[in-house]
Computed example of a mutant assay.
Amino acid sequence: MKIQEIQDNIVQDFSFFDDWEGRYQHLIDLGKDLAELSEEEKKEGNLVKGCQSNVWLASEYKGDKVFYKADSDAILPKGIAALLVQIYSGQTPQEILKSNEDFIEKIGLQEFLSPTRANGLLAMIKQIKFYAIAFDAKRN
């Protein structure tokens, strides 16, 4: 499935919730379903800089696609990380790099997050795209 289709599905999922309490709980549930990283994957190099909590993002390049795994020691960032893994994992570096993040505004996520959490979200996206750039450069 293409990134835009996944984002559209997420926007639709979040539209079923009338308030932020439901959306917040949905994010928490996404985080609960996220597989935990191994202790080896929770290394300093995978720590996302700019997050208030500890968030780790690991990546792997298989075939022509990038696969992401994430974890956090806090429940809400873990849910946000799960959302991003759902969107970007299994895509080519080129698809990741040309994608936009308008789904964030469409689901109202930035309005709901504190400024430090919003910065953490942007830091996670930046790290995802950084990995895509690195894998794209390795491919060429």
Rank of each mutant, 00 (worst) to 15 (best):
N119R: 14
Q91R: 12
Q52L: 09
T92H: 07
G31F: 00
F103S: 08
L37D: 03
F16Q: 15
A123V: 09
L47P: 00
G120D: 08
W56D: 00
L121K: 08
S53L: 03
A81N: 09
I87E: 09
D8N: 15
Q7F: 01
K138Q: 13
M124Y: 08
K69F: 04
K2R: 13
D13C: 05
E39T: 10
A58L: 01
I87D: 06
W20P: 00
C51E: 03
V48A: 04
L76I: 14
M124C: 09
L27R: 09
I6H: 00
E21H: 07
D102V: 07
S53I: 04
I80L: 12
D29Q: 14
V66Q: 02
L27P: 04
W56Y: 06
K78G: 05
G22L: 02
A137Y: 13
D13K: 10
F67E: 07
K42W: 00
L83P: 01
F130P: 00
K106Y: 06
E95R: 08
A74C: 03
V48R: 03
E60C: 06
V48M: 01
V66H: 05
L109N: 08
G90H: 05
K69S: 15
L121V: 10
D64L: 10
L83G: 02
F112Q: 11
E36R: 13
S38W: 00
Q12V: 06
D71E: 01
Q91C: 11
K78H: 09
G79L: 06
D13T: 12
Q52M: 11
V11C: 11
A58Q: 07
D136N: 12
G108H: 07
N46M: 03
Y68M: 03
S59W: 02
V66P: 05
I80R: 05
A118M: 08
S15I: 12
E111D: 13
H26P: 02
K43V: 05
L47N: 01
E60A: 10
K42S: 00
L109H: 07
I133P: 00
W56M: 00
Q94T: 14
D102M: 10
I133D: 14
F112N: 10
Q127D: 05
L47E: 02
I6W: 00
K2T: 13
F130M: 09
Y24F: 13
P93H: 09
D29K: 15
F112R: 10
I75L: 13
A74E: 02
M124R: 11
K32F: 01
I104L: 13
N54R: 14
D73A: 04
D71H: 04
T116K: 15
G108M: 08
G79W: 08
Q7A: 03
Q86M: 05
P77C: 03
S59A: 14
I104R: 12
N119G: 14
E5C: 00
